[in-house]
Computed example of a mutant assay.
Amino acid sequence: MGSGGNAVPKRPTLLDVADRAGVSRATASLVVRKSPLVSASTRERVEAAMAELGYVYNAGAARMRAAQSRTVGVVVPNLTNPFFAVLLAGMESVFETEGLAVIFANSNESLDKQSGFLRRMREHAADGVIVCPCEGTDLRLVEDAAAWSLPLVQALRYVPGTGSDYAGIDYRAGMREATERLIGLGHRRILFVSGNRRHSAQADRLAGFQEAMSARRLDADAVIHLPLTHGAAREAAAAIAAGPDRPSAVICFNDVVALGLHRGFLDLGLTLGRDISLAGFDNVAEAALVLPGLTSVATKPFSVGENAARLLLRRIGEPAAPVSRLIEPTEFVARESVGPAGPALDRSSDLL
């Protein structure tokens, strides 16, 4: 018996599958990569040919050929905030249709955690990353990514002075409109409860509040800073409500803080919308579930997530494309927690 009798059978190739199915190699490739661009009948023919020939898709080899890992990384500063869960769902809805695996991470506002995650993404040859920069992030975020040839998109927050793609929200306009709505209801002593973190989202919301207040010659410095937790806000409610000059309305950095104050004011026996008005920002699902309903500013985090994912896919496919910024508008959502100011609540109304 000649040695040829023990030869290892030739493994079927993708070209063999394409020939058997009567399609091009490119079409067969789309089928194995689960692309939605292929019709159902064509997909069935190609899959039948794969089964007949015993073809097995080698993801590792394909990755080497394409020089892509089909993996992207996403890091956000606070996964306990329901807002970020909706944001991530928007991103995943886009990446899933492209067959990309997504690795999520929580920086917890830690530069070390954020930097460590980005290094791991580089080491594992991720195709790109989306970053919501934590407090203290500087220009090196974008500079390092560029040096590593790692496509990067900033989302929700941005580092001033950096030239990278960005998907965000018009926080400034949203906070300005919400403050103007309160002024329009007769409120003059309006308190802005801000977060205790320093980043672009905080700066933009603060700027919107101060612009609206300054335009009506009201106290634009009526601002306090709290940790962005339900507990810290609930605890602060008594101090905010105490004294003869308490604000007639409170507007918050986000709904986490507003919901904490909501509970805190109710604990004190105050009626929201009558004794004191309260507004949040982000319009999370809980804003419509509490009683009375929490007035808020809708920010469309799902759409922002979709935008960020599309920007990253574009950057991966076109590394030299011009920098793009996609900014979602906001929408004021009125509920029962806000009402008109009465004379007893706001004795400075004669200023205007």
Rank of each mutant, 00 (worst) to 15 (best):
R198G: 08
L326R: 14
A49G: 04
P151H: 08
S29P: 08
V333M: 06
D245T: 10
V290N: 10
G163K: 14
L206V: 11
S24Y: 09
F302Y: 14
A249K: 04
T13V: 08
R246E: 09
C134E: 05
L206P: 03
E96R: 14
C132W: 01
E44F: 04
V256W: 03
L352E: 12
S107F: 03
V72P: 00
G128I: 00
L312M: 08
C134I: 04
R176V: 03
A66T: 01
R20L: 13
E286N: 10
A155Y: 04
R11F: 11
L118P: 09
A222C: 02
L312H: 05
V8P: 02
L150V: 01
V76S: 03
A207P: 00
V76T: 12
T27W: 12
R216F: 09
E336G: 06
P292A: 07
C134W: 02
A212W: 03
A287T: 11
L141W: 04
A178T: 10
L311F: 09
L37M: 14
D255F: 12
P36K: 13
P82Q: 05
T42L: 14
R263V: 14
A62Y: 01
A334F: 10
V304H: 04
L111W: 03
G293Y: 11
N283Y: 02
S93T: 10
S39C: 07
V131G: 09
I240G: 10
R33E: 03
D282T: 12
V31Y: 07
L218E: 01
A220V: 06
Q68Y: 02
V142Y: 03
E47Y: 02
G168W: 02
E328P: 01
E47W: 05
V256I: 15
R315V: 06
